[in-house]
Amino acid sequence: MPEVLPHLQRLEGEAICILREVAAEFRNPVILYSIGKDSSVLLHLAMKAFHPAKPPFPLLHVDTTWKFREMIAFRDATAKSLGVKLLVHTNRDGIERGINPFDYNPDLHTQVMKTEALRQALDMHGFDAAIGGARRDEEKSRAKERVFSLRSSNHGWDPKNQRPELWGIYNTRIAPGESMRVFPLSNWTELDVWEYVQAQAIPVVSLYFAKRRPVVRRAGSWIMVDDERMRLNPGEEPEQRLVRFRTLGCYPLTGAIDSTATTVAEIVHELGSSASSERAGRVIDHDQASSMEKKKREGYF
């Protein structure tokens, strides 16, 4: 067994226990796989939880069609090498309406291509439990959420009326039409995730590591020019810059940071001296005080 800190082992044990509880109690669960580091850790834990069997649930990726190209390549390679079933869903209606992050408000883009798309996919497959890699330390409304978080028949979250959740005894009962969102990484921090990635040598998308990339400066963030669809403003000239990403999402809405960290160990070191939060690079998060809560009440992860 690789050398891990006791507290990482404890987090691992808790997460595996949660994943097995889902397998035992739900009829049709799914892992929401968003390709980022948290999803990589989640998938790694699912592989371990059921070893030597494969995880008894498929992966679902909600593809907005604006993800970094490297993410999509990594996604397909991961599903193939691990031998797990991968479902990809895109909101066709949104595509036909021409929704994109340039002509529309980023919030609307997220609403249609992520939240609505997710609801469509969950309804279409009839999933009764959706496992996600969200963590409580990411954002303050997430800090309030239960590990097993009930969703109404239209996928809404009622933050004022959550079920009490004592010890590690989870109430998994749902009425017809309702579903459960489950967060095995609730108690992990960003640093825990990276330390675990390091200890277990878990593959992550190379966008997390510093490299010279073509970027433009927008609203205080470095936005990468990932393909020809990126619209440049008059006078805007992409520059090659040594950057990396702390979180991953739709490339026009995800800011890179200046960094020289090219290994996981360097990332762990860098986090120790960082003054900004993990989600600071996400354009969709900081428009209002309760934007995440609002999105979650509508069904966002």
Partner: peptide
């Protein structure tokens, strides 16, 4: 910093 829900604030 901690009262993360709209109703709480």
């Amino acid at each position: 910093l901690l009262d993360g829900l709209e109703a709480e604030r």
